[in-house]
Design a protein around this nucleic acid. Structure first.
Lengths: 142, 142
DNA sequence: GGTAGGGTCTGTAGCAACTACAGGGTCAAG
DNA sequence: CTTGACCCTGTAGTTGCTACAGACCCTACC
């Protein structure tokens, strides 16, 4: 069935496997417009080429860096438009970096309190549970 | 309409306001079983008392610390059952702490790469965009 | 020829943890 | 008696997937 209509390319499963992604995810990315719809063979099967793979890898790396679907769409638009994308791409990334740092700060606050209560729960000699007391009466975290 | 059926308590909006939460969220917590259904006045309005407020504050603090709904349900069960909850509560918390630390580690990896590309994009003297190059050809983060 | 097995296709439902309505009821004041 | 401010229920939307159901299609084997 390979090369059925003169189109040679990878099918979904192989495509996903080569890029280390879930094959349902690939379809999802096509649906939300991050990946172009690939050409089809005569029987309607998707057939992926090098450009698709290149673009999918871009999307996967961006996701690994925590960019949202919306942000990735922005970045790809900049890539496609090709007129001086760097400054704008940097803005998108700087905004995202600020988000990441805010999340890290949030999580560190959580970590600090959690570490503290786990330590205080540690010996278990208290009549009440420090964790539960903290949740009922403790200070607000944020 | 206050004290309509001999029940005195707060209505939804006031209850949410006092605890700094969204009133839709309160209903959500009731639906998923984190908060007990409050008594109703004769006209069917919810009427909240001190115990509800106490419990809601518990839930809100737990959410601030990043506990999932499922985990909070666990903690509340331990609170309600009242037989030596501390050891189990500590286990729940320790597991959650590990999750938080894993997330922090992920985000720090992201932060490192993002900071790097923003810096390299900074002067904008390169012909290509370092960010876009990284996404197309750069190393995998994870 | 028939059938078993693997792949593929579409569309839809589910997850967390909310948030935001729509479309109705109730109540007190002017 | 109408206006406005609450309240009620149920359902749909959000993000980023993941997991089906129910249908094709294609190859291989007997």
């Amino acid at each position: 069935m390979r090369d059925h209509a003169g189109v040679k390319g990878l099918q979904r499963a192989e495509f996903a496997r080569r890029t280390g992604s879930n094959l349902e995810t690939v379809r999802y990315y096509e649906k939300v417009g991050l990946l172009p719809e690939p050409p089809r063979t005569a029987n309607g099967y998707r057939s992926y080429g090098k450009t698709h793979e290149r673009r999918l890898r871009f999307v996967l790396r961006a996701r690994e860096l925590g960019f949202s679907i919306y942000e990735i769409r922005e970045l790809l638009r900049l890539v496609d438009e090709r007129n001086r994308p760097c400054a704008e791409a940097r803005d998108v990334t700087a905004t995202h970096l600020a988000d990441v740092r805010a999340k890290i700060a949030d999580l560190r606050r959580m970590e600090r309190v959690l570490k503290d209560v786990v330590t205080r729960c540690g010996d278990g000699t208290f009549p009440g549970c420090p964790l539960i007391e903290t949740l009922f009466h403790g200070p607000t975290v944020g």
